[in-house]
Every structure is written in structure tokens, then in C-alpha cells.
Design a protein around this nucleic acid. Structure first.
Lengths: 220, 220
DNA sequence: TCGCTTCTTGACCAGCCGGTCAAAGTCCTA
DNA sequence: TAGGACTTTGACCGGCTGGTCAAGAAGCGA
């Protein structure tokens, strides 16, 4: 901790652009390894070997494997955030905007299943990267809360934080639990295009049912 | 694998009752360790030390740490299953029964948060115990499907398997993600009694909105 | 009491892990 | 071209892991 080299400290503040070719190769290797073999396969040795580079560089650049992993998570999150913010900025009625956000969310998860699994794994196991995940997820919650501000009370069982938790659960868990329940899915692959379209329809139906309920609650 | 002692093989088939005092001590120690320090802390050495017993016994009884862990999961699941089956057997209207199951589910998660987190962690990381988890979760899906058979089609976006995934996501993820979003909760503790009551009300509202939607879909 | 089976122990092994470090290589500037 | 800063390497360390094994302890029926 206190013994990290000045180079490592300087590097840590740099933007991704300033990174050496090798540092980038290490990040890419880590991401690839994560995708193919999961978190438990991520070791300084394995990453370095995949990048064709010496293990010591991991510690030269990030001071620890923890640091390297955090940067990988940060890179993932930048993409996630960009995708979400674009979705939340769309025009239209509330219902249209909600549907649009759901579609983008589903699209992102479909393409970035690894990220979703890593986050869920960290959360479930109270992993060492939880503080970073916590920061990220809290930011995302803010986006939902802003969108639902007009139709949900600021507190209680119908507040935006509850709906945020519920709707993200409905979306995310399909990608994590779906494959586990594959026996229940016709064709046996919940991640196939057909099954995903069906899930998309389900998610739309689900949020519609909620919006209907909120409207009636507001009216009654 | 092929070299496991005959004793281990014989033991594996035995009921929990037949287990030696020491075997039981090891299982209890593993469960305690899981609760206090998470899966990563589960090692044959650590478990044996906590049980006050020699490490070699783990391999004598189960052949591997994997085997020990599976038995811990099995024990957890037995309790889960008992709790669920009792809940599903209740009398009353569909709506009453659904609410009752939700209450029991929430109660169980409140008391067995560790089990929920271990399962979610295995699922998210495609861990080595996934096959066992898959078997368990598929059984549970069957219970939901039976309960909803009268109000959901057997296929498509409104089939029971989609609602099962969604409702269990809404319940489980509160316990895993809630603490991560604790900054958004008044008092800062989503697992406190007050916050849990609020979540319970949310879950009831959510399933009611769905049942309303299903009724209207059936009527229209 | 003998002898067999089951149980229990501690010593031991190879393999992996994160991390350190001195030395060497590379690059750029003066 | 000399010299200093930055980068890269491979050897090395202690510590932990799952797993094996031979030897001894304990229980038990004859």
C-alpha cells in the first residue's frame, strides 16, 4: 500500500489514453480472461501470460491485482453508463421512455453478460470490489429515481428505489438465472434470440402492469 | 476421484443421522464459516480448525472439499424446501396463497441470507456447484408453476416460468443488492425491521399489480 | 485377549497465489 | 554521446491451497 512506486501513483491518475501499449494489453487480457473463465481465473500470472508480458508489470502499473481488476470494472462501467444515459435522455411519454430504457437495458445485458455476472458475483459474495460496485450502482439508481419522480412518492413501498431494485432484478436475473433454469425453456437456451424476444415482451408487460397500478393509485 | 476410500463412498450414501459426531461438527463449522466469512474463506484447513478436528477427516468423509460444500448446500436446501412446501400447501384464494408464499419466502430469506448469497454467487460465477443449484432451483420452479397454472398460459411472455424468475428476482435481489444501495435507504439499513416491512408491502403491491393485469388479460 | 474394521492424526507434497527486488533494457534529453 | 528517468524482466519469497499417506488409536465381536 504505502510502498507503491511513484510511477504507479502517477499512472493511476492518468486517463486511459495515456496508458502504455502494455498496460492496455494487460487490461484487454484481463477482460478476455474474465469473459472466458470467470473471476476466479483472474491472477496476475494468468493475465500477464495472456498479454505476453511480465507479471511484474501488473504491480508496476496498478500496485496490486486488485487495482488492475478495479480498472477493468471501471472500463466496463463507462460503457454501461454511456448506454444508460443515452437511453434515459430519450423523448416521449413516461411510458414510452420507460419502455425505451428497458429495451436498452436488455440490449446492454445481452451484449455484456460478463459485466452483469461479475457485478452480481461481487454483490452476492461481498467481494473486495464492492465499494466500487456500490458507487456505480448508486449512480444508476439516481437515473431511475429521476425518471420516476413524477409518478412515485419519495418514500414508502412505492418509492422509486423499490421499483429500481425490482425492475433491475427482473432484467438482470434473467441473464444470470435463465441459463440455470434452461431445462424449463423450450429449445433449452434462454439466451437464444427467440427466448430473449419473449423475455423482452414479459418485461414490457411487467412494467406496464406497474404503471397501470401507479396510475390507478394516483387516481383513486 | 477414483481413489476415494470405500469408507467415503459408504458414508456418502448414509443419511445425515448416521454421521459421526465429527462429521457433523465439520458441517456445522463449514456453515458457520460460510455465514461469517463467505465462500472464499471455506478451506479444508479452516473448517477443520474451527471444528477442532484434523483436516484429513474432510477427505475421509467426503473425498474433497467440494463434497463437503455440496453437503452444506444440501442441508440448506432441505430447510428451504420444507419452508416452501409448507407455504405452497396453504388454503385460500389464489391471491391469498400468493401473498402467503411471498411472506414465507421473505421470512426465509430474512433468516437465511447466507444461503441466498451463496446460491446467487454460484449462479453468477458459474461456480463448481452450479449443477446442484440447478437441480434445486428447477424443483422450486415447479412449485410456482403449479400454483400459477390456472392463471398463466403454458408458454409465451406470461408463462409461469417468466413470473417465477421475476418474482424470485424481486425478493432475492433485495437481500443481495439492498445493502449495496443502503445510502438510498432512510436509516441506511435495508435489513432493519422497518425497511423490511416496507419491502414486504412493495412485494405485495407488485404481485397484486401482476394478478390484476392477468385478470384483465383473461377478461379482455 | 486377540484381531479386524473403522476412525483419526500429523507430516508431507506439488502447485498456485500476491508481491518484492535488483538488474538490465530502452528512451529521450542535454 | 553521456546520463538520468522510465520501463521491463526473471528470479525469488512466504504463505496458502487441495490432497495423500503411513501409522496409530479406538471400538467391537469372537
Amino acid at each position: 500500500m504505502g510502498t507503491e512506486s511513484t510511477a504507479a501513483v502517477a499512472r493511476e491518475g492518468d486517463a486511459d489514453e495515456a496508458r502504455t501499449e502494455r498496460a492496455r494489453a494487460l487490461l484487454d487480457a484481463a477482460e478476455g480472461l474474465l469473459e472466458e473463465a470467470g473471476v476466479e481465473a483472474l491472477s496476475a500470472r494468468a493475465v500477464a501470460e495472456r498479454a505476453g508480458v511480465n507479471k511484474g508489470l501488473v504491480f508496476y502499473y496498478w500496485g496490486s491485482t486488485h487495482g488492475l481488476f478495479e480498472q477493468v470494472l471501471e472500463r466496463y462501467y463507462e460503457r454501461h453508463k454511456a448506454s444508460l444515459e443515452a437511453a434515459f435522455d430519450a423523448e416521449g411519454s413516461l411510458r414510452e421512455r420507460v419502455h425505451h430504457v428497458m429495451d436498452e437495458y436488455l440490449d446492454f445485458m445481452e451484449e455484456n453478460g460478463t459485466y452483469a455476472r461479475v457485478v452480481q458475483q461481487q454483490v452476492a459474495s461481498r467481494g473486495p470490489h464492492l465499494p466500487l460496485v456500490e458507487k456505480h450502482l448508486t449512480e444508476v439508481l439516481g437515473l431511475t429515481a429521476r425518471m420516476l419522480a413524477d409518478v412515485t412518492p419519495s418514500d414508502g413501498p412505492l418509492s422509486a428505489r423499490h421499483f429500481h431494485l425490482s425492475i433491475s432484478a427482473v432484467v438482470i436475473n434473467y441473464f444470470t438465472y435463465g441459463p440455470v433454469l434452461r431445462a424449463a425453456f423450450p429449445g433449452g437456451d434462454p439466451l437464444a434470440a427467440e427466448a430473449l424476444a419473449e423475455r423482452r415482451a414479459h418485461v414490457h408487460w411487467v412494467v406496464d402492469a406497474w404503471l397501470d397500478g401507479l396510475e390507478r393509485a394516483a387516481a383513486g
